[in-house]
């Protein structure tokens, strides 16, 4: 029998979080970053300030050098690689700057990709139904047989969002997902992202360069002033 995990007070709890790239001299230090369940946070700062690095730390893709990092009730530094992968597959959705849909798969199979390869996930009727619902909700229903190269940028973006939301994550991590869009399109895309995350009950952390969208977030973390720095600077 397994006891149900109590809902944590914070979806993301990072204190005195430190990270350094061994070869580049880059260091990141976050004194405190807190995000409640279902909360929305924006990461801002110039290029190279560590926005992507923090996204990767929160997703368990990178391991911190020190500090406390609890996400979704897990002490991430304490988890093994396999446990991190299994947790990430089920509880974290990732939207990348280049969206990174696989060209050799059609849209339907791109949406089902987490279930095909994710640790601890199984592709079954429920998963297919879930992918279908997301495709419908994001207006992708008629495009499921298309390859990513035959989709518009906006359609690919929605597809990447649907893929990230597929397994029902608690935390959606988005690394500059609207970087290549013009401002109105970027805002529409962000609205959709936040709207869908809210509908799924997922917390959202978005790395962005666009100061015009910051009012949509409850928390804004400026890495340019906080922690990202070159060693010796």
């Amino acid at each position: 029998m397994t006891a149900s995990r109590p809902t944590p007070a914070w979806l993301v709890e990072a204190r005195e979080l430190a990270f350094a790239w061994p070869d580049s001299g880059f260091r990141l230090r976050i004194p405190e970053f807190l995000l409640p369940p279902g909360g929305r946070a924006a990461l801002v700062g110039p290029s190279g300030s560590g926005k992507s690095t923090l996204i990767h730390l929160l997703g368990g893709i990178l391991r911190p050098a020190g500090g406390i990092l609890r996400v979704d009730g897990r002490e991430l530094p304490a988890l093994s690689e396999a446990e991190l992968r299994a947790w990430r597959s089920r509880r974290v959705g990732l939207v990348f700057q280049d969206l990174e849909l696989l060209e050799f798969l059609d849209l339907r199979d791109n949406l089902l990709l987490p279930w095909r390869i994710g640790a601890g996930l199984r592709l079954d009727d429920t998963a297919r139904r879930r992918a279908g619902e997301l495709a419908r909700a994001l207006g992708l229903e008629g495009l499921l047989a298309r390859r990513p190269s035959r989709l518009s940028r906006g359609e690919r973006q929605r597809a990447a969002l649907a893929r990230a939301l597929g397994p029902g994550p608690a935390l959606l991590l988005c690394d500059e997902p609207t970087a290549s869009l013009d401002p109105p399109a970027a805002r529409r895309a962000l609205d959709l992202l936040l709207e869908q995350a809210a509908a799924q009950g997922a917390g959202v952390v978005v790395a962005t360069h666009d100061p015009g969208v910051l009012d949509r977030f409850e928390t804004v973390l400026d890495l340019g002033t906080l922690g990202g720095e070159e060693a010796g600077s």
């Binding site: 990709l113 390869i117 640790a119």
Partner: peptide, 16 residues
């Protein structure tokens, strides 16, 4: 390489 990296970040084990 990027495609492989995407798979890894989504949750695919390096061995996979």
């Amino acid at each position: 390489q990027r495609e492989m990296e995407t798979l890894r970040r989504i949750g695919c084990a390096p061995g996979t």
